[in-house]
Design a protein around this nucleic acid. Sequence first.
DNA 1: TTCATACTTCGACGATAATCGAAGCATCGC
DNA 2: GCGATGCTTCGATTATCGTCGAAGTATGAA
Lengths: 238, 238
Amino acid sequence: MKEGPDIAQIGALIGDPARANMLSALMGGRALTATELAGAAGITLQTASSHLSKLEAGGLVGQRKQGRHRYFALLDDEVGLLLEGLMGFAASRGFLRARPGPKDPALRKARVCYNHLAGDFGVRMLDRMVADGHVAIDGDEASLTKSGEERMRQLGIDMDALHDQRRPVCRTCLDWSERRSHLAGSLGEALLSRFIDRGWARRSNESRAIHFTRAGERAFCDLFPLPEPLPAPLSHGE
Amino acid sequence: MKEGPDIAQIGALIGDPARANMLSALMGGRALTATELAGAAGITLQTASSHLSKLEAGGLVGQRKQGRHRYFALLDDEVGLLLEGLMGFAASRGFLRARPGPKDPALRKARVCYNHLAGDFGVRMLDRMVADGHVAIDGDEASLTKSGEERMRQLGIDMDALHDQRRPVCRTCLDWSERRSHLAGSLGEALLSRFIDRGWARRSNESRAIHFTRAGERAFCDLFPLPEPLPAPLSHGE
DNA sequence: TTCATACTTCGACGATAATCGAAGCATCGC
DNA sequence: GCGATGCTTCGATTATCGTCGAAGTATGAA
């Protein structure tokens, strides 16, 4: 037998639909209870408990007990990165699950991808930053420019703190609904936090969707106007 | 049910040990026949055929027919990237398969990780380049410096061609045997090719190992000396 | 043309793992 | 203390899927 990492174990953990659903739910970035995860996966609580135990043993999730509640979350950034990659890959191969009925516009418009903004708004934000010369894209690589650094500081982003972190400030993450990149990395996370702290947007309680307030959406669109005027108004999307 | 990428399908494809073994074998960067892959996975040819059909349908491998031989390879760079990430992740979670008996020194010393040099030599190379100021590491990000650019050109690397490519010139890839990064990206690939073209090293026919000739090893070690003198001579390792 | 080799397809078998009802334990609120 | 709620554990069931022997097709070499 071959020496090396046992990718089959990781694959098998993710390869069960119920477990995949739970991991996807946790990509919303919030800790969820076992009951909530069972609901997200459409299975009973006892089955969810069994699955979560496996995910925990495999180092994909961790739990925190609060009284009778068990809050599960992705164990660390590495898991988030791995799942991001898997999502982008699955989408690139055409493995997409379509909900019967109309597509979920809320998820497509704005949602959390582990810790940063994804969806139409996420892609729009990166596109704007690139068009303004704040972010430079070289192939799959993204880097913040000097002017971008300045701009982010104006927006109240603590750039010193971001530079102190081990991970990249800017990273591209393939958006499964838009099929283009949105901004990940420490800056991506900081920006989403900023929008939420400012009250522009809030997290949905039921899904990974990010709901912008009317004022917040206006502010966001002012900050990141579309690179080109489109005949269809963006705000038409409820 | 949730809308979004179906990561369970990808997970399940990789989650079977036989399929995982074949994918790992293909990380050696060479196209292999169905018979070779069956041998690598320790299964019969008919089982391998069935598995390869699934991997192909899933967009992970592609095949090229040459007479009666079917050569299978990873479908594209995206697959390589995904598997690299999975390998690093599996190793980080402790999912390692140990061969009964002594560890495989050849794989640990130098092997192919999809298209670039990995193992002790791979890590050593990156460390040297960092110590010489040719590659700058910022968290997980790697970039070639001006002096590094110059140095690579001196080594005969066509840097213009590398810059024309879509992917990063330098990328870190977590080495599962050394638990540190080796150099991936277009430069990582170009360097491995260079060593092989110069006759310093050759690919093993049986595994992902890279065998350096005596002269090639000397040249490699001259080019990338250890950052610090160690009491144990590196060349002691057969 | 014949034989050997590489590979695909079919179908039966059996091992595995997800599933859930039932039961039990821990915590919370009245 | 009691009932409700959140969660874990146990055990039986069953669907799924990997496996391989057998048979067939395609290619190469003598």
